[in-house]
Design a protein around this nucleic acid. Structure first.
Lengths: 113, 113
DNA sequence: ACATTATATAAGCCATTCGTTATATTATTC
DNA sequence: GAATAATATAACGAATGGCTTATATAATGT
């Protein structure tokens, strides 16, 4: 299983989306996806972990998952080839860069759980 | 089948990569992937077509496929959320923007201070 | 009309994946 | 140490995906 296959699953993208806001215990995902059972969610986490899209650290009985951005950069590098093919994209990039540059001295913060 | 699933397959990414260089007849892909049979390639093209990642126009017996960038922009919009999580990305973006700007105006600026 | 070229569709097989229930593991609390 | 809480693993069935061979469609050339 590679990164592309890993993010092809909606639930796993949902998990990543939640992790974009910060570190979270596995239980949060179980609660967030009522359509799935706990083992089901656990398996998705396992997949994201083995692929390298997330990492874990134990906190008592809990396991805190967090985003592993380097792997997502892989995906971005693939898209790189196609960027410039669509219009309207440039403005979005410029806006993003402006935000980035404006907050360059401050590190991106992570919400504690 | 959605865009994420469509690009999760290596052969289909290969097809898109070839299309990044321009319009191509179906036969080109059959030739480019010796590990697959013609119907196998045809099915991948069908999938890319139904998802909206490519389009076709007939030219005599041939069918010319070309990239449909708008659909890839969808993927990019998803990644947007995560951009800014990895380092080193900024420079690549800036380089790209510089290229873009350079092609839009006659005199590109070397480095903003 | 018939053969050829280019591509698509059909049918079937095998591998993978996703979900489930049941059970195991690990840490905490009483 | 027994009970509880949080999470992981095992085993398995159902669905999906991708590949194949065989066949169909469509346009071109003779």
């Amino acid at each position: 299983m590679d990164v592309f296959l890993a993010i092809s699953e909606p639930t796993r993208r949902g998990i990543l989306d939640m992790l974009a806001e910060g570190e979270r215990p596995a239980g949060d995902f179980v609660a967030a996806f009522p359509g799935l059972t706990q083992p089901g969610v656990s398996r998705h986490l396992r997949i994201l972990l083995t692929v390298g899209l997330v990492s874990v650290r134990p906190l008592s009985q809990k396991r805190l998952y967090s985003l592993e951005p380097k792997k997502l950069a892989e995906l971005d590098r693939w898209l790189e080839r196609y960027r410039g093919f669509w219009d309207g994209r440039l403005n979005a990039l410029e806006r993003h860069l402006d935000r980035k540059k404006a907050s360059r001295q401050s590190k991106p913060e992570r919400k504690p759980s």
